[in-house]
Amino acid sequence: MIVFFGIKKKNFAYNAYTVMQCPKCGKETKHYLMLQKRAFTVFFIPLIPLGTRKYLVCEECRSVTKVSNFPPKDRVIISTGAERKD
């Protein structure tokens, strides 16, 4: 019997950003918060949660930077516009 193992990733983009210098393009721009949840799958069925990763997405160059923690609350601006889809 063939058993399909894998990792399912689910990204959540937030309408919240912090302003910082981008490590990729070097510009001082908005960096949007993104979460990624990962789970171990068997036959494409999620079985074991593998935790959550945090990313910041540069508005200018779209580069994704993995961070161990999001910036503190007072440095994050939650915009009230439409929900980001990506």
Binding site: K8, K10, F12, Y14, N15, A16, L33, L35, K37, A39, I45, P46, L47, I48, P49, F70, P72, K73, V76, I78
Partner: peptide, 19 residues
């Protein structure tokens, strides 16, 4: 377990929880 993991995987945490 599969149901619980699927629920966890697809549930978007609120920004307040994230921060």
């Amino acid at each position: 377990i599969a149901a619980a993991t699927t629920f966890w995987l697809y549930k978007k945490p609120k920004i307040e929880e994230v921060l």
